[in-house]
Design a protein around this nucleic acid. Structure first.
Lengths: 367, 367
DNA sequence: CTGAAAGCGCTTACAG
DNA sequence: CTGAAAGCGCTTACAG
């Protein structure tokens, strides 16, 4: 791309050394707090560093000691047509990234972030290039196919978010099963709804499969009647959710008493579409989401959903990647607990927001 | 910190060369599309690269050609006690960062992000270390003092956001004057309010000074009575805004008919405090913000404010930094246009959200 | 405690 | 078109 050779003043450790009247080895030691330099040596070096405003080149350090202290993060950037309020939902990715940053911070690592658009080409090449600039990679949901991940994991330590571990990559996710389970129980047992529907997320998402399966299992266990099938296929977007409702209604199908949505964005679209057809939430149809994005509480009615510990997810992902980088270890699949957030879209009374932990159906993945 | 030497398999260009039966120079040329290698040479190299899953080391490339293709971004991380809804407001930093990323993407650069807490120590050292890993830095608002910035700009190209240019650093900001001006005019001319107050931001913020000054000037020009003084000192936080109102009321002072707030977060706190004292917005006091953060439209009443083109701000900051890095140029102070977003907190009727450009009082800074 | 020197993995004139 | 070799700016055994 750009061809600007040699940076500007490009001060090097040699400049510092000659100014301080010592060898570059001494400068390096002082700068890194290694060995036990004489006080005078240290002082002269520090003074020269100060006078010159010297800062060591990260690339040279990385090349020399085999550690960049940088980890790469790849995430999906929005880009298609978005609903009102949907754009901001995308920011939950940033919350995770901030969690990663907090974890990295503690170890002196920095985050190298790179986004991928829905129709960017040669994504794999872009990610590989990123890998070359980092000690390890954290991949957000659905960035690469399983084989793509496996191939990449072959060259660099990898942690995926909300995916599944592969032979070479580690994974961190939230406890989807318990979340769906808590939602179904709340709807069936506490509200007494007997018929349930589930608007799915993208079919290529592990989270989606897990949630759908948990829904079917738990609804059956609770003795509720469920409505499923291809007509219920969403794609995690508000437009997808709105579309499912519109199609169902256009086909003259009767909606179940309560509809669980694969995520909050989908719920946003569903509620919107319902309102357009004159159906009331929760009086006619109860709705729930999954994620607890910032706008969830501002919807009309406020959305009952599952809160995922996004920031912790990020911090945990870093910790695991770090242990893989430094010791080659790292737990293969880590599961984080979620919380049920009861607001009004499920039929509960206004002003009674309630947050509660869910009983895990899955053991914590730590070994 | 961590001491993991040499990465894992650490494939190098030598491995590729020997597998392909060519020199490392040829491998490098093929990989970078330089020169005109024979088709056969290219093919053998590509095949070896594929078989080995080789990805060139970024540190070595950077050291060799003097360009890391990485730019550092430093921002402030929240951390103190936050109001309900305030946490998410912090995400507007992420919107800017995404804008930067989009700009960087176009040039094949990646973003190295690093946050700084409100009470982290030796921030300057941390930022200097970051500088060593990047080709240039973008600093969010109020990360460093003017002299700190000047010193840093001495070692690496720097672009500040919402600050002021120094001899060595460039700056990008939004047109605060026009924003405040549009707000004052709307309040005084369209609504006929005769008395105005202004809750300030942090006193060390250039944006704050500019906005306050524009407020005083424009209010005087419009013939409105203004209430100012130390009692009106906020700090850009919701708590700060709430505090101003509480103090004013406790001191028995009569509030002006309309209060402009230095930013949306402040407005959030002001509205909250007003509600606690039983005062209605906009009937008793009209309120306006600045920024148009995502929650602004969800407040009660929805907030009239100034929308800043955050994403463009970020993209522009990158472009300017890039031109400084590659050609040593770059406009010293770039000003972006803002928009007036009229909702209900100013006294306008519900459901009549209106967005309009503002007349710039400042010439665009491009040269 | 300190210095000379090798080596990290690339890129790029310079010869051939 | 292609290779041998120098050099990018550090770190770190290895001697002294």
């Amino acid at each position: 791309m750009a061809e600007p050779k040699k940076a500007r003043g490009t001060l090097t450790i040699y400049d510092v050394a000659s100014r301080a009247g010592v060898s570059i080895a001494s400068v390096s030691r002082v700068l890194n707090g290694l060995g036990s330099p004489r006080a005078e040596t240290r002082e002269r070096v520090m003074q020269a560093v100060r006078e010159l405003s010297f800062v060591p080149d990260g690339a040279a350090r990385a090349l020399s000691n085999g550690l960049k202290e940088v980890i790469g993060v790849v995430f999906r950037r929005g880009g298609e047509e978005l609903f009102e309020g949907e754009d901001e939902s995308f920011l939950f990715i940033d919350v995770i990234n901030r969690g990663i940053e907090v974890g990295a911070r503690r170890r002196g690592f920095d985050l190298l972030v790179s986004s991928v658009g829905f129709n960017d080409d040669n994504v794999a090449a872009r990610i590989a290039a990123l890998a070359g600039k980092a000690d390890g990679l954290i991949l957000h949901d659905r960035m690469l196919s399983a084989v793509g991940i496996a191939r990449l994991a072959d060259m660099v330590p990898i942690v995926t978010l909300a995916g599944s571990p592969t032979a070479a990559s580690l994974n961190v996710r939230c406890d989807n099963e318990s979340g769906i389970r808590a939602l179904v129980r709340h709807l069936v047992i506490e509200h007494g709804y007997r018929s349930l529907g589930y608007v799915t997320g993208r079919s290529d998402s592990p989270d989606n499969r897990t949630r759908l399966h948990a829904f079917a299992t738990e609804a059956a266990a609770a003795g509720a009647e469920i409505d499923t099938g291809p007509a219920w296929q969403g794609n995690y977007s508000a437009a997808g959710g709105a579309n499912v409702v519109a199609s169902l209604l256009d086909a003259g199908r009767k909606l179940p008493r309560a509809i669980l949505c694969a995520n909050d964005q989908t719920a946003l679209g569903v509620i919107h579409a319902l309102a357009q057809r004159g159906l009331r939430v929760p009086q006619d149809v109860a709705i729930t989401g999954f994620d607890d994005v910032p706008v969830a509480r501002h919807l009309h009615p406020p959305l009952t959903t599952i809160r995922q510990p996004m920031q912790e997810l990020g911090a945990m992902a870093f910790d695991i990647l770090y242990s893989r980088i430094s010791e080659g270890g790292g737990n293969a699949d880590t599961v984080l607990a979620v919380e049920l957030v009861v607001r009004e879209s499920c039929g509960c009374a206004p002003g009674s927001t309630r947050v509660s932990g869910t009983d895990p159906v899955v053991k914590d993945g730590h070994r």
